[in-house]
């Protein structure tokens, strides 16, 4: 955090001397203020997109992970095929395919937002599935046996015994995925999603100040991700608090 503050002041100070033209985003001037709020207005969709996508990808990831844990080779096969295929598709390609291809294949119309959400969620779900599978596999076999011995059903065993312990263990990994998702959401700018990166691109085109504008963009992601990381750490501490 200290390092970040140092970096930020260094950048700002640097801007006061050299070739920087911070005036484009100087909040003291009217146009600077307008530009700044234009850039920041992308925050809404970056967050909405990432959060919606991560929620869907966690759910899909869990649903894909469960057959991967089965004794049945066919179910395990479904899991493997899904994970291998989805993991092999670059996210940018996935976004283009979902936006331009899926509507034709499925004969539906799809908004930029939902194309972005679906593409990001699909891409990420393969990783979530692997995280869940590893997390669930790390739970001791005795926990299943104890659940069996008190007659819990498979669903109850998962819901009350296995998943609460597994999620605690994979929380750091899930936090990483959210950070990853926030970064990857910038790719949805290519299909016109009005999120942070798209806003910056549009402003660069009118203001010709790529250095300052993209620096602001970097800082926007940096702050966002530092906040998320702090939030995840806080959540981890809270979940572990009852262990003391």
């Amino acid at each position: 955090m200290k390092l970040f503050l140092l970096m930020m002041t260094a950048l700002l100070l640097g801007g006061c001397s050299g070739d920087w033209g911070w005036y484009v985003v100087n909040p003291a001037t009217k146009s600077g203020m307008n530009n700044l709020s234009f850039l920041l207005s992308g925050l809404y969709y970056t967050i909405l997109l990432s959060v919606t996508a991560i929620i869907i990808s966690v759910v899909v990831g869990l649903l894909v992970a469960l057959p991967g844990l089965s004794k049945n080779p066919f179910l395990r096969g479904i899991n493997r095929v899904y994970v291998e295929i989805v993991r092999a598709v670059p996210i940018l390609v996935m976004i283009l395919w979902v936006y331009y291809g899926l509507p034709q294949v499925a004969d539906i119309s799809i908004t930029v937002f939902w194309a972005g959400v679906i593409a990001l969620a699909l891409s990420d779900s393969a990783f979530e599935a692997e995280i869940f599978r590893a997390g669930i596999q790390s739970i001791d076999k005795g926990q299943y046996e104890a659940s069996h011995s008190i007659s819990l059903s498979y669903t109850d065993t998962m819901r009350f015994v296995i998943l609460p312990q597994a999620i605690k263990r994979i929380l750091p990994a899930l936090g990483n995925q959210l950070v990853y998702m926030l970064k990857m959401s910038s790719l949805v700018s290519v299909i016109g999603m009005q999120e942070l990166t798209r806003k910056a691109n549009e402003l660069v085109v009118t203001e010709y100040r790529p250095l300052e504008i993209y620096t602001i963009l970097v800082l926007e992601y940096l702050v966002l991700i530092l906040i998320v990381s702090a939030g995840v750490r806080w959540l981890e501490r809270r979940m572990n608090a009852d262990e003391k």
Binding site: G142, E145, S149, I150, S151, D156, V161, Q165
Partner: peptide, 30 residues
């Protein structure tokens, strides 16, 4: 299954639940 209870060498208690919740989970759910 519910007529046969089992006690394990390694206890296999549910570590994330209180003693009370360990005891009531089975009766409530099954």
């Amino acid at each position: 299954r519910s007529k046969v209870g089992m006690v394990f060498q390694q206890f296999n208690l549910f570590p994330h639940l209180t003693v009370m919740d360990n005891l009531t989970l089975g009766p409530i759910r099954s």
